[in-house]
Design a protein around this nucleic acid. Structure first.
Length: 398
DNA sequence: ACCCGGCGGATGATAACTAC
DNA sequence: GTAGTTATCATCCGCCGGGT
């Protein structure tokens, strides 16, 4: 190099652009990846060069420019992440074909965390570094008490996205923490992020969801769940509109459509159960919801929703009615008018059964509670299916 | 190319607030 | 005290554009 009086730049440019076979062979070897080697620097020679360039003690002024070189690569990685996220079938919900079963499956945000983490590892890593790196107070506390912090904090290097701590594998914390932070029974995530008042995993999940929803409105899993949650929590339409514009949730109108859809599905399930021949019972329940004061000057009127809720509950372990029972059943029709108080008077036998049922109910609740503490969910054997067959509005005047 | 999901805006009602 | 403006709500409608 000195003998020929060429600059390093000229030499490097020639090395990586020449067509001379003896040189290209060596350069290809230099650019190759050798997975059997132990360290990255021996696996991939450019990594060795890059790490030498990153020596801030030797070339402090160059560091700024070397980092800037990585920015276009970061953009490419972000675009790849984004493409994967918006084209994933797991993250899109089609309202028209949504069923209650689908919706129940969706209400497990832990699954979403795993899906998005896999689809967008780079973006997740960047946001993780952004949100979980210790702030001034935590750094101070760490030096004072030597509190163990999650790994990967405080090293925002380009390779940091791979080595952050595994996600807390707790079932409902993301959902619970979002729905009712005070009532959440176990803050499982807080042991992974000591000192944090919010679960960073949920924040990152929501961030990526918002970004993807802004780019492609069909990537709507989390916005749909959150929209439903906001709506049924009584959030005002202005707030929902604002959150919808920010990409947090779908519009109020879309939540209305979702409600229509799952109501249709609920009715379908109820009809299915009734038509199946299984023994069932129904519960009717009136609900009266105050909406707003609609008139005060002439009359005192309120707008209310007055609806009747109907639950159809199947009883699995009861013998089905047969045709032979039909005559007996039909003979009962109209007999209620002749009923007397003594017909429904509890007998000692009833008292005994109610007592046993009560004990059994307590036992079931205790078992369900224990189950929910260990497995994170209650699986009930009863088939409760609900529908809202009729709802109507009228103005009540008092 | 076409379907339809989702969005923005309209609608129609009244209470509450504000400027004059 | 009056007139005008703003806020609020559920629901309806037309249209854009993503996805098949």
């Amino acid at each position: 190099m000195i003998f020929l009086s060429v600059s390093t730049r000229q030499l490097m440019h020639w090395l990586f652009t020449t067509e001379i076979p003896a040189v290209t062979k060596r350069i290809s070897h230099f650019m190759g990846f050798f997975s059997t080697e132990s360290t990255l620097e021996t696996q991939f020679a450019p990594a060795l060069i890059f790490n030498l360039w990153r020596d801030g003690n030797r070339w402090p002024k160059a560091q700024k420019h070397i980092r800037e070189m990585a920015i276009p690569c970061a953009h490419e990685l972000a675009l790849q992440d984004s493409d994967r996220v918006i084209s994933s079938p797991h993250l899109r919900v089609r309202l028209k074909s949504l069923t209650i079963r689908d919706l129940r499956d969706l209400l497990h945000p832990t699954k979403l965390v795993e899906i998005i983490k896999e689809l967008a590892p780079f973006t997740w890593g960047i946001l993780h570094t952004f949100s979980t790196s210790p702030n001034k107070a935590r750094k101070q506390r760490k030096t004072d008490e030597d509190v163990p912090m999650p790994p990967s904090l405080g090293q925002p290097s380009a390779g940091a996205e791979e080595d952050w701590a595994d996600d807390p594998n707790d079932d409902e914390n993301v959902e619970e923490g979002e729905a009712s932070p005070e009532a959440a029974p176990n803050h499982g995530w807080s042991k992974d992020y000591p000192g944090f008042s919010r679960n960073p995993v949920f924040v990152i999940l929501l961030t990526i969801s918002m970004l993807a929803f802004a780019r492609n409105r069909a990537t709507n899993v989390l916005p749909l769940i959150l929209g439903l949650f906001f709506k049924i929590s009584g959030t005002s339409s202005r707030v929902v509109t604002m959150l919808s514009n920010a990409g947090v949730c779908v519009s109020s109108r879309t939540v209305e459509r979702l409600k229509v859809r799952i109501t249709e599905d609920a009715i379908r399930l109820a009809v299915e159960l009734i038509a199946s021949g299984q023994v069932f019972f129904t519960i009717f329940d009136n609900i009266n919801i105050f909406l707003r004061k609609s008139q005060q000057r002439i009359s005192n009127s309120n707008d209310m929703i007055n609806a009747t809720n109907c639950a159809v509950v199947g009883i699995p372990d009861v013998e089905q009615f047969t045709e032979a029972d039909l005559a007996e059943q039909l003979a009962l029709r109209g007999q209620r008018a002749k009923a007397k108080a003594t017909d429904i008077l509890p007998t000692p036998e009833d008292d005994r059964i109610v007592g046993k049922s009560f004990v059994a109910l307590i036992a079931f609740l205790a078992a369900a509670f224990a189950c929910s503490r260990s497995a994170g969910s209650i699986t009930s054997e009863s088939f409760i299916r609900r529908g809202t067959p009729a709802s109507y509005r009228y103005k009540s005047t008092r």
